[in-house]
Amino acid sequence: MVALTRFVTAGPGALLPALFLSGCASVAEYPRPFYPAVDVVATGETTPVGSGNADAADDPAIWRNAADPAASLILGTDKKAGLYVYGLDGKVRDFVAAGALNNVDLREVRPGFVLVAASDRSDVAEPKIALFRLDGATGKLTSLGVRSFLAAGHAPAEAYGFCMGKAQAPGELARAYVVLKDGTVAESALEEDDGAITARHLRSIRFATQSEGCVVDDRTGLLYVAEEDVGIWWVDVRAAVLRAEPFAMVGKEAGLVADVEGLAIAPQGKDGGVLVASSQGDNAYVLLHLATGMPSGRFRISAGRFGATSDTDGIELVLGDFGANWPGGLFVAQDGDNAPQAQNFKLVSWQAVVDAVGEKP
């Protein structure tokens, strides 16, 4: 193993060095390892997505109904067709045929206004953000339109990953981060103008290879990005210049097996807790201490009443009471092989994960 210097672009002409460990050959040239992990079982699942015989289900988001946790909702993308809304019983509450939506996130930007946004890859040359409003009482989505955000004349680019962070300036509803398939992460301000929501591109940072999963820790202002064959990086989005720093790299030390896919956060206190990552290469999920990037546990969703998961892309986690089956929080994972049915999303009690790995809630 040798230390190599890696360059990440954070704007026109800017090269930022970061260190990581790498061998002389790519990850794909070696047999994938299979690291130990504890088993948990799902306590629910969603109705399969409508696109059968395809890699279609991709990324979930969770809206917790604070007044009635059992009435909370799950959103999930069918990247061939659109966006689903599910109840905790897994049944479909709504579906919007919105095209090739890949990753989804949501924010309650003000009381009663749940803003849902997704990366729209319907046009592989023109990345867009699809916007919706979620009615928590009915589970219905209202389309707010699709927004381009890059300047005219940009090079062809395909939208891929997506996540949102809190607003950072007056007039903003949220910050949007679109991970393009070439490794670029574009930051935009979602703003409200005379009742319409616009996406104003602010700046970008580029990773060397394909990236997708991302999540923002609003407490610290850190954006975490999964570069699939390399590992997880953090970026301080409060800083004047975006700089990528290594958080946890693929390999035994972090317990990550490429591809590294979906990311989610279990916060604790002011800035503690864990980052959860989909270690797709060995069908596991890794808990990484936010303070150090070191693993505190690994788990797999094993066969049970609702089946195991494999080849997981997107994940989501929200802490809090979701009813009897999810008293300490809800973890949702895309299942890449739900045969003989189409792909779907599995629901897991976060308390069951905490108990299994011994991690403090």
Rank of each mutant, 00 (worst) to 15 (best):
L4N: 12
T5D: 14
A10V: 06
A10T: 15
G11H: 11
G13Y: 09
P17N: 04
P17V: 05
S22H: 10
G23T: 12
A25K: 09
Y30G: 07
P36W: 06
T47Y: 08
V49I: 12
D55N: 14
I62V: 14
A66Q: 14
D68K: 13
D68E: 14
P69S: 10
P69L: 11
A70G: 15
A70H: 00
I74A: 09
G76N: 08
K79R: 11
A81C: 07
Y84P: 00
Y86Q: 03
G87T: 01
K91G: 12
V96N: 00
A100M: 13
L101I: 01
D105I: 01
D105A: 15
L106T: 04
F113M: 02
L115N: 01
L115K: 00
L115E: 05
P127I: 05
F132M: 05
A137M: 04
S143A: 15
S143Y: 05
L144Y: 03
R147P: 05
A152K: 10
G153A: 04
G153R: 02
P156M: 04
P156D: 04
K166P: 12
A167I: 01
E172W: 02
A174N: 04
R175D: 10
A176P: 03
K181R: 14
D182N: 15
G183K: 10
V185T: 09
A189V: 06
E191K: 14
E192Q: 00
D193P: 00
D194L: 09
T198H: 02
A208M: 11
A208W: 03
Q210L: 12
Q210T: 12
D217S: 06
D218A: 14
R219L: 11
E228S: 10
E228H: 08
W234G: 03
V237G: 06
A240L: 08
L242I: 08
E245R: 09
G251W: 05
E253H: 13
E253L: 13
A258I: 11
D259C: 07
G262H: 07
A264T: 05
L287V: 01
L288H: 10
L288Y: 07
L288S: 07
L290F: 06
G293P: 05
G297M: 09
R298N: 12
S302E: 08
S302L: 01
S302W: 02
G323P: 08
W326G: 00
P327I: 06
V332D: 08
Q334I: 07
D337I: 05
Q341E: 15
Q341T: 11
Q343L: 02
K346T: 14
L347D: 13
L347G: 12
A356P: 01
